[in-house]
Amino acid sequence: MVPAIDISAVSRRFGQLQALDNVSFRVEPGEFFALLGPNGAGKTTLISAMAGLTRPDSGTIRIMGHDVVSDYKAARQSLGVVPQELVFDPFLTVRETLRFQSGYFGLTRNDAWLDELLFKLGLADKADVNMRALSGGMKRRVMVAQALVHRPPVIVLDEPTAGVDVELRQSLWSFVQELNHAGHTIVLTTHYLEEAEALCNRIAMLKKGRLVALETKDKLLARSNERDVALKLSSELPASLEALRLRQEDGRHILRLPELGALEGVLATLRQASVEVRELSMIEVDLEDVFVNMMQGGAN
């Protein structure tokens, strides 16, 4: 099967800054994929390269098998991008905006689909309102609609929920999930990790232009099969357990276990050394921890 997105050894410099450093990965058709990374990691630059807004210094990108440089027409026809920056044409109404956008993609009689988009995105009553008169969140919805006028098989959303209220976030995500179920490949970047955790099957993490992780969400979470436990003890930690200790805080020892099963052994060791356990608690792992860990260079 042709990958929905095929990124191969892409690098891009801006002066001294290596914004993308030999990034390669694939997104398969039908995936719901998250691209994560701190500010300045290169997410937007990578998306721009997919859309042909930026030319990589080296490497190639294919969208549904179409090279974004040499076969740009087919590549762009297959791709819908919601840019990160909030932009709009102040001369136009919402419907004009969508009609013109359809025309740029070569579509004329597209009104039925535009009406559906307007309805799904809660814009039906704003169709004839000038773009200038919309709130920021409404403008963001129009940008989502603009990215979808040509029903692209691959949809990329660059932080679509930045500055958007909870209600819209939820309705937007259920709409995007619907598109995903209908077969569209979705790529999103977000700073809300719980969104990525709730929605995505697979996650790529960028840091300083480099791909530092690429895994299914489950694997990424399971990477922390490793469990951290906090123990409060009646006396010192036996020397044989020193190797597991991460740190000490508030009179508790924080141990990192390779897996939960290892707890048994730890408790046995403590019993043998006649050390009493006063308190024991597990430290929950979530994507946030994995993420922070990686960005600090902890893992990998």
Partner: peptide, 11 residues
């Protein structure tokens, strides 16, 4: 204004 992006994304 940045809305030129809507002309650069289509084919």
């Amino acid at each position: 204004t940045g809305n030129i992006v809507f002309l650069l994304l289509p084919p």
